[in-house]
Structures are given as structure tokens and as C-alpha cells.
Write a protein that binds this DNA or RNA. Structure first.
Lengths: 248, 248
DNA sequence: TCAAAAGTGTTGGCCCTACACCCATGC
DNA sequence: GCATGGGTGTAGGGCCAACACTTTTGA
């Protein structure tokens, strides 16, 4: 079915179910093949990509709404989800639904609450919905054009994530159960957008005391087999709560 | 006039002017008499205090709305204003307008966008509005009970501010033009909730390179007269943009 | 002259940088 | 063996905490 017809059919119903003028946009990060990925959707018949998003039910907490929206898209529950910013400029979706009737639900002015999520790539199955004809992982290093201000939202999410590296551990939600130091280092490097010194990274990460070294190594690749680690979940959660870095 | 009558009169009008279900709450910090203050209002005939807040006009950016609301309350423009979090729980104002008609504007479910502001205490004149019978500075160390979830919002603002100390300079908006090191140290101590070592604080702050030492001292107090400093605005703004502390 | 506050000096330890050096592996 | 990447060692500098010392002021 065509997008226009679908939107107009849903429009009336949405006014009854959801809070008006409010939306949620999710920036879902995954890590795969030594690169950072973002979940993106493409509306039927459109060329531009967008972030997965949705609306808040009239009788639903905002955080619950974000969780629900994410679960619909990924099939995964209990995802690490972090509200990071509100996008409330008047003109942020200007002209996007031009030609559609003015009372169309989707043509409202939206104040959007931005969340970012960190997920284990292999546990996620991107799910399309009625309005989209694509829901895929895109590489953060090589992004196509996005609709409305979704590229801005993505950039702000990345910079919020980058800030978080300075006082919280990361990786438990993004990496598989077992991983190597070079993989963890690569993750940091991609988020930060710069290369790090190997030895110094090893020592700094180990000093955090959130890693457990396993008696195994990742065989099979060329060259020396790197040691495998996993996170100590208890210490990791403590570090999440108490913060890592030097404070006043 | 009584609160109820006032609210009911404004109610209809508000539906025309503002976006429904959305509000803004401002945590306005000031520094005076060696203690941290917060601007609070009290609704007519109510015992509990609340944060100054307001609504977003249908044709207004969210950030502009926050600025407008603050200017109405403080008379000051160009205030340092920072969005820090959305409060979107369903039950956050539960029962507050019990007994009022269900279609009252103020009885809606609100998703509130939290901002904190840093202002120069002496440049602010707290302004009451129609609905309140008090608008005052309260001491952060000695707070009364607040309505709804406003105490939570205040606490989250403080902790956001505390986090900001780790990567941004502070003080330009809170202190007078000229100030002493003990005053700046006191400001940090109050925000952080702990005492700092004098010598180490001096050196660390000076190393930031955002202070200019003046050839004056604050005479008049007992004991040795402390040197006066002021911020180098150019370097201060650079530090605000680039961040201060150690990063990856 | 004395107490209290402001300002400066000093010491040891830790972390950070940079780089060098080994080790393991596939070709 | 050799190139490549993984893991560890090390030397120098800077920041940090803690504490001691000096200076300045009003009473």
C-alpha cells in the first residue's frame, strides 16, 4: 500500500492513542565487524533515511515509550537506553509533509525527545513497520543523507556517547560476551574518532578493574592470538553508578 | 483573586496559545553570601514551593520558550541556560489539581523539559506572577518541601551541574565581575558538597588559564585581604567550548 | 602580639605519554 | 625467517594529595 494512504488511515486513530506534538527518536548503536553501526529506517517510496521513532501513549511513561518503540524495532528487551536531549526547534521538520492535509497526525509540529541505545549487534533483528520499506544497520563512518534534522540528532547522540566515555564504562551492551582488547580498543577509537596508544589503553582499562581475563585466546586470525576478556558484571555496574574518571 | 478562579479564567486561553501536555521547569541557581540559592515560587494559598515554569507557544522554539519564561521571572536576558533532562513519568503530578474540572489546562498530563540556569544573583529581581504569592531565593542547603516532583528536578539539576564541573568552567555567570579565590573555591565546594584543599584548588584553577589576577585585594574583612581576580572572557568561552579536563 | 585566613612551597606517589622491546602466528 | 599484530617494560613529566610554612590583616 502507498505511504499516503497508510498515513491518512492511521491519522485519526493516532490522535486518540498518543500525546500530540511529542515524539521520540532513537539512535541505536551497534558494533560489528570493527565498525560502529546505526539502525535506520526508510519510509515507503522515500529516498532519505530516518531514525526509528514513535509516539508516547496518553497513559504511558516517556521512558516506557522509548523502550516500547525500541523493542518493536529490534525485538530486544532490556536495552541500555539513555535520554540525551530534546529537539524542539519550530522548523525542524519544515515542509516534510507538504501536500498532505493539515490535520494529518504526522504533519503536526513535534518536540522530539532524543534517546540513544547501545545494543548487542547480533541479538538484534531489524524489524520493518507498515510505513517503511527498509530497516537496516548503516555504518556511522559512511552515512547517506537523512530526513529532517535526523542527522543532527545522530551527531548529538554520538557526542553524548563520547562524553559518557569520560565517566562511565562502555562495552557491556555493545560487545559480545567474550572479546579481545584490540576489539575494545577499536570500539573506543571509533566512538572517539581517533586512534589510541595500545599499551596505555590496556593499562588504563585494566586499572578500572571491570575486566576479567580468561584463559583463552581468539585463535584463527593471522598473527598472535589475542587474549579473551569478559566484563565483571558486578564491578561494571558499580562503575556505571559511581563513575570512573578523576573528579574534584 | 483566588487561585482557582484565576486558573479557570486562563484555562481556555492557554489551549489556544500553548502546546498541550508540554511544560518547562527551570532550576535557577544563584550564588550569594557564600551559599547557593535557587529561585522558587509559591502558588497562591498553597504551602508547598515549586520551580518557576511555563509552557511552549505553538509557534516558538523550545529553547526560546525557556528563555522567555526565565526573563519573565528574573528580568534578566541572555542567561546561561542548559537543558538537562525530560521528566515524563505518568504520575509525576498525580492528584495535584484534584477537585478541579478535568478540562482545566493545568490539570493535563505534562511532560516537562528541565532546564537549569546560572545567574548573577545581584542582577536578578524575582518577579511574582498572577498565580503566585511568593517568588524568592531559597538556600539549597536548607530547602522546604516542594510540590509534585520539583524536588527531584532540583536534585537532578544539581547533579547535572556537578557533572559539568568536570569538563566545563563555571563561575562567569554566577559570580560578580571581580571575585576572590576563596569565593570561587566556596562556589565549587557548595556545588560538589565537599571541601577542597586550598593550595591544590588554587593551582588547578590557575592552570586552566581562564583567570586574570588583578592588582587589588578585597579589604575590609578580618584577616589577610584576598587577591581579586576576574575571568578572561575569551579564554573562558574557549574552555566552555573545548572542555577542560583530561579526556581520552 | 596573636589568631585566623590567604598565599606559597615541598614531597612522594600515581598516571600519562612515548617509545622500545619481546612474543606468537601465518605465510 | 619475516612481517604483522599482540602484550609488556620503561623513562620522564605532570598532576595530585597532603601538609608545612610564610604573609597579612583586624582585634
Amino acid at each position: 500500500m502507498e505511504l499516503r494512504q497508510l498515513l491518512e488511515e492511521k491519522s485519526q486513530q493516532n490522535y486518540l492513542i498518543y500525546l500530540p506534538n511529542l515524539s521520540i527518536d532513537c539512535v541505536v548503536f551497534g558494533f560489528y565487524n570493527a565498525s560502529l553501526k546505526v539502525l535506520a529506517v526508510r519510509l515507503k517510496g522515500q529516498s532519505l533515511w530516518g531514525l526509528p521513532g514513535g509516539y508516547i501513549q496518553k497513559e504511558e511513561d516517556v521512558d516506557s515509550a522509548a523502550n516500547r518503540i525500541l523493542q518493536e524495532r529490534t525485538g530486544a528487551a532490556n536495552i541500555y537506553l539513555q535520554q540525551f536531549r530534546v529537539f524542539g526547534n519550530l522548523n525542524r521538520s519544515e515542509g516534510f509533509f507538504e501536500g498532505y492535509p493539515d490535520d494529518l497526525w504526522h504533519k503536526q509540529r513535534y518536540v522530539s525527545i532524543g534517546y540513544y541505545a547501545l545494543v548487542n549487534f547480533s541479538e538484534v533483528n531489524p524489524v520493518m513497520d507498515l510505513f517503511s520499506d527498509a530497516c537496516e544497520w548503516l555504518d556511522v563512518q559512511d552515512l547517506p543523507e537523512f530526513m529532517m534534522d535526523h542527522r543532527l540528532i545522530l551527531d548529538k547522540a554520538l557526542s553524548a556517547l563520547r562524553k559518557q566515555l569520560n565517566y562511565k564504562p562502555i562495552g557491556l551492551s555493545l560487545l559480545p560476551e567474550k572479546f579481545t582488547m584490540p576489539e575494545l580498543k577499536k570500539l573506543y577509537e571509533i566512538i572517539l574518532g581517533k586512534t589510541l596508544n595500545r599499551g596505555n589503553f590496556y593499562r588504563k582499562i585494566l586499572r578500572f578493574g571491570i575486566l576479567e581475563k580468561l584463559n583463552e585466546s581468539r585463535k584463527g586470525g593471522a598473527h598472535k592470538a589475542p587474549d579473551l576478556y569478559r566484563f565483571d558484571h558486578i564491578r561494571y555496574k558499580e562503575a556505571l553508578k559511581n563513575g570512573l574518571q578523576s573528579e574534584w
